[in-house]
C-alpha cells in the first residue's frame, strides 16, 4: 500500500510541479483565447453569459432591494432641495398641458370622425412587459442594465425598452429569467432616429458618455438645440415615434442629444413587444417563421 503510494508520488510529483509552474502562463493564454473567441464567435460567449446571468440574477435581485430605500432617500433629498423651483415649473407646465389637453380632445374627436369616414383599421396596440432593473452592469466601458424578465415573460432580443419618459435602449441578450438591455449611450448602440419638427433622418450613436451623438445626417440639414429626437422606425428595429431625447448642443463635439431617460435613476422599465424582429433577429424567431411557412405550405 505504502509502496503504491510512493510510486504514485514519484509519477505525479513532476507533473504537479510542471502544472504549477505553467498554470499561470496557461491561464493568461486562456484569457487571450477567450478574448479572441468573443470576437470570432460572439454567440458562444453570449450563450454562456445568458446562463450565468440567469443563475445570478435572483441573488442580485435580492441584494438590490434594500437599495431601493436609498434611491428614495436620494429622490427625497433632491425633491426638497428644489421644491420651490419645481413648483413654479410645474404650474407653468400644468397651464401648457391644460391647453394641450383641450387640443388633444378636439383632435381625438376629429380623428374618430375621419377614421369612420375612411373605415380605417387601426394597428394592433403594442403589448408590454414590465421589468425591474436588478443590475447596473458594465461600469466604465459598457452601458448595460440587467432586468428580471426573460424569455418566460415574453422578452425577445431586439425589443425596445422604454420608461414613461422615453427610450432606454434595446434588449441585447435574453435568458429565461433575466435580460440585458443595451443602453442608447453604449458605444455599440446605433438607433435610426428622426428630428420631429424637421423630419431630418439621422443615426443616434452612443459613445459611452452621458450624451449620445447624432451622426449620418442628410447633408445640408439644419438642427438646433431643443429639437426633439424620436425613433424613425427605419430598419425595422423600433416602432416610429418613440421619444428619445432633445438636442442639447451642436458644437465641436458633434450634435449631442440629452436623453429623456436617466438610466441611473431607472428602477422599472417597459419592454415593448411590437411584433417587430428588429435588426437582430433572434434565431428562435427565424426558426418559428420557417416552421410556420412550412406548415402553411403543407
Amino acid at each position: 500500500m505504502k509502496k503504491n503510494q510512493h510510486n504514485k508520488e514519484r509519477i505525479f510529483a513532476p507533473v504537479k510541479a510542471l502544472t504549477q509552474r505553467f498554470a499561470y502562463g496557461f491561464l493568461v493564454v486562456l484569457a487571450f483565447a477567450l478574448m479572441l473567441t468573443g470576437r470570432i464567435d460572439p454567440r458562444f460567449v453570449e450563450g454562456i453569459r445568458v446562463h450565468v446571468t440567469d443563475a445570478v440574477s435572483p441573488i442580485i435581485d435580492v441584494m438590490s432591494r434594500p437599495l431601493d430605500g436609498l434611491a428614495e432617500l436620494f429622490a427625497t433629498i433632491s425633491n426638497i432641495m428644489d421644491a420651490r423651483l419645481q413648483n413654479e415649473r410645474l404650474q407653468i407646465e400644468r397651464d401648457t398641458l391644460l391647453h394641450w389637453r383641450h387640443v388633444a380632445q378636439q383632435l381625438e374627436a376629429q380623428n374618430k370622425e375621419l377614421r369612420n369616414l375612411l373605415k380605417f383599421n387601426p394597428d394592433n396596440s403594442p403589448k408590454f412587459i414590465s421589468a425591474r432593473v436588478i443590475g447596473d452592469a458594465g461600469g466604465a466601458f459598457a452601458h448595460t442594465l440587467l432586468v428580471n424578465a426573460g424569455k418566460k415573460n415574453g422578452v425577445r432580443k431586439g425589443q425596445a425598452v422604454t420608461t414613461g419618459n422615453g427610450l432606454v435602449g434595446r434588449i441585447q441578450e435574453v435568458g429565461s429569467l433575466s435580460a440585458r438591455i443595451l443602453l442608447i449611450t453604449d458605444l455599440n448602440s446605433r438607433i435610426p432616429v428622426i428630428i420631429e419638427s424637421t423630419r431630418v433622418r439621422a443615426v443616434l450613436a452612443g459613445n459611452n458618455r452621458l450624451k449620445p451623438r447624432l451622426i449620418h445626417l442628410s447633408p445640408g440639414s439644419i438642427v438646433s438645440p431643443g429639437d426633439k429626437v424620436v425613433t424613425s422606425g427605419h430598419a425595422g428595429a423600433f416602432p416610429p415615434g418613440l421619444p428619445v431625447g432633445e438636442i442639447s448642443s451642436t458644437g465641436d463635439l458633434g450634435i449631442q442629444v440629452k436623453a429623456f431617460v436617466d438610466p441611473s435613476r431607472t428602477e422599472y422599465v417597459r419592454v415593448f413587444d411590437f411584433g417587430m424582429t428588429g435588426i437582430l433577429p433572434a434565431p428562435e424567431f427565424l426558426q418559428d417563421t420557417n416552421s410556420s411557412v412550412t406548415s402553411n405550405t403543407q
Binding site: T37, R49, V52, G135, A137, G138, T144, R180
Partner: peptide, 8 residues
C-alpha cells in the same frame, strides 16, 4: 460575464 463588455 456580469459586465456587458468584451469577455476575457
Amino acid at each position: 460575464i456580469l459586465g456587458g463588455a468584451g469577455i476575457g
